[in-house]
């Protein structure tokens, strides 16, 4: 892409006049300008997919809400990132995530380091209004270094993307639809028997909750490191050029 073809667009986010390159997403522009929009499935360094819908925003002239991570800006766009309606929806999303699986924070290795937990706090989720499904999912502890606990999974798909886009192994994938969706390794084999897994551990470190963890940690000890991701992506893109 040559510099000449880049078009600068002007837009407003929360009443602030901004300009940005055409083709950028609302989320990216907001983040570059220090405007906070909650995210969960999105992660800097991975392609956006708009799965969790927490980054929904309002756009003037549209009755719908739009996921900021996959909506491109346009000239004259007016975006609202905080409103009573948006907060209501965002809280509802968090509540639904909590109600789908058994998130027992007290005994979770990610307690205190969990993105779902901190989002619930920031968004002021005090109670879950929906009945809990609490299906007890079997823990996959077959891998010698890592462990998958579907009871803590929010189906954000970060593991799928990091494994496919960065590591290039594509060990992870989704199985099923809707609330029966599950994360699987290879063709739904135990993780420990996966032939494609390179044991790099990137999926563990991008996982926002205690669904993918390292063995050997104890309760509240699983702090994850994600700083590596943008650099890794940058370096790999450099190789391809």
């Amino acid at each position: 892409m040559s510099p000449q073809t880049v078009k600068i667009k002007t837009l407003k986010i929360d009443g602030i006049d901004l300009s940005a390159r055409g083709g950028e997403t609302i989320l990216k522009v907001a983040q570059e300008n220090g405007i906070w929009i909650p995210t969960l499935c999105n992660l800097d360094g991975l392609s956006p997919v708009g799965a969790c819908r927490l980054c929904i925003v309002e756009i003037a002239g549209s009755p719908k809400v739009h996921p900021a991570c996959v909506t491109e800006i346009y000239e004259g766009m007016e975006v609202i990132t905080q409103s009573e309606r948006l907060n209501r929806y965002r809280r509802m999303i968090i509540e639904l995530l909590y109600s789908e699986r058994a998130h027992i924070c007290a005994v979770c290795v990610s307690n205190g380091h969990c993105e779902l937990q901190s989002l619930a706090k920031v968004l002021g989720v005090t109670s879950i209004r929906f009945p809990h499904l609490i299906e007890n999912h079997r823990v996959d502890a077959s891998h010698d270094r890592f462990l998958k606990d579907d009871n803590r999974c929010v189906l954000c798909g970060r593991c799928v993307r990091v494994c496919h886009e960065i590591e290039g192994a594509h060990t992870w994938d989704f199985m099923g639809r809707g609330i029966t969706s599950m994360m699987i390794t290879d063709l739904n084999q135990p993780w420990g028997e996966s032939e494609s897994c390179t044991r790099c551990g990137k999926c563990v470190h991008v996982c926002p909750t205690g669904a993918l963890i390292e063995k050997g940690v104890s309760v509240a000890e699983m702090a994850k490191r994600r700083q590596f991701l943008p650099y890794l992506k940058m370096m790999r893109e450099g190789e391809n050029k």
């Binding site: 007290a106 005994v107 979770c108 290795v109 823990v139 502890a141 606990d149 104890s218 309760v219």
Partner: peptide, 14 residues
Amino acid sequence: EGRPFYEMPSLMAR
């Protein structure tokens, strides 16, 4: 049942 062993101390403490 079915939980990783290392959750037990914290669970039992409660």
